[in-house]
């Protein structure tokens, strides 16, 4: 696919999402506010009732900062999941048109996925600025320009990893009528094993050592730690290498699933 066409698809998707402005911003602001409130109350209770000044190496403000970063970077990693719902294209028969388009299906969908990130980038900047007034200055001091730049690279790879992780799962739609539940299961696993629900520092050591080699922690936990300045360059390079290896493996798996699925596909839709 030519870069020009890739950019056209990217731009179209970004404009499409921005066209629902009021609903989009009300939901986003309310959703973020409620999520932050729930996290604040949970960890306020945890620190108060445990009587500890640090839990898993995090102070209260450090913990809040972790979650804010996890929520905001998570938006960039996940993108607009509904808009890039590959399984729906199969289920509704829309996949047929990609067979005759002079573009590759996955390149098209990935461009759409990146287009969907533009509003998320605006949210990250906006909510990030607002939240900097809530979290203590000492916790924010760990964030540096180099950390932001490296986190940008980690998030870009995490977004690709997330896209490739979901592709084989959504490809099951060639055989099953509805893969919504599989999609939700994937989300559950990513959230608990990736560090979106809890920082992985709180997990037992044996679990940490296993998770280190799995793709999930490179979706949330790793980019957040990079942003917060907790990762040295050698660890950053090692983490990126593991994430990139998973990208290659998942791309091969996705290709196998979709090639086999193509043979099954009848284009009937609903």
């Amino acid at each position: 696919m030519s870069p020009h066409l890739f950019f056209q698809i990217f731009s179209l998707q970004a404009r499409r999402i921005f066209s629902y402005r009021a609903e989009f911003w009300v939901n986003t602001a309310a959703g973020f506010g409620i999520q932050f409130l729930a996290i604040y109350c949970l960890w306020d209770a945890m620190f108060r009732e445990s009587g500890q000044a640090e839990i898993g190496g995090y102070t209260f403000d450090g913990m809040l900062l972790y979650y804010v970063a996890a929520i905001l970077l998570g938006k960039l990693v996940r993108g607009r999941e509904r808009e890039s719902d590959l399984a729906n294209e199969i289920y509704e028969g829309g996949y047929t048109r990609y067979i005759i388009y002079p573009v590759r299906f996955f390149a098209y969908k990935y461009a759409q996925n990146l287009g969907g990130l533009v509003p998320a980038m605006v949210q990250v900047l906006l909510f990030g600025a607002v939240i900097s007034f809530v979290v203590a200055e000492s916790a924010l001091a760990t964030i540096s320009l180099s950390g932001i730049l490296l986190a940008g690279v980690a998030v870009a790879l995490a977004n690709l990893l997330h896209f490739l992780l979901k592709a084989p799962v959504q490809g099951v739609a060639f055989w099953a009528d509805n893969v919504w539940s599989l999609d939700v299961m994937t989300r559950f696993v990513i959230n608990i094993l990736g560090g979106a629900l809890l920082p992985l520092d709180l997990y037992p050591d044996w679990a940490r050592s296993i998770l280190h080699w799995l793709p999930f922690e490179y979706l949330t936990f790793f980019p957040v730690r990079v942003l917060l300045g907790q990762v040295g360059f050698a660890e950053f390079a090692g983490g990126m290498a593991i994430a990139a290896t998973w990208c290659v493996l998942l791309a091969l798996l996705a290709r196998t699933v979709w090639r086999r699925g193509d043979r099954q596909y009848t284009g009937v839709g609903i």
Binding site: S50, Q52, I192, L198
Partner: peptide, 19 residues
């Protein structure tokens, strides 16, 4: 399973939560 794991991990670091 995720909910059990979530609270299980929290209770590794505290004895009480919300009383």
């Amino acid at each position: 399973a995720v909910q059990f794991a979530f609270f299980g991990v929290l209770y590794r670091h505290t004895t009480l939560l919300g009383g």
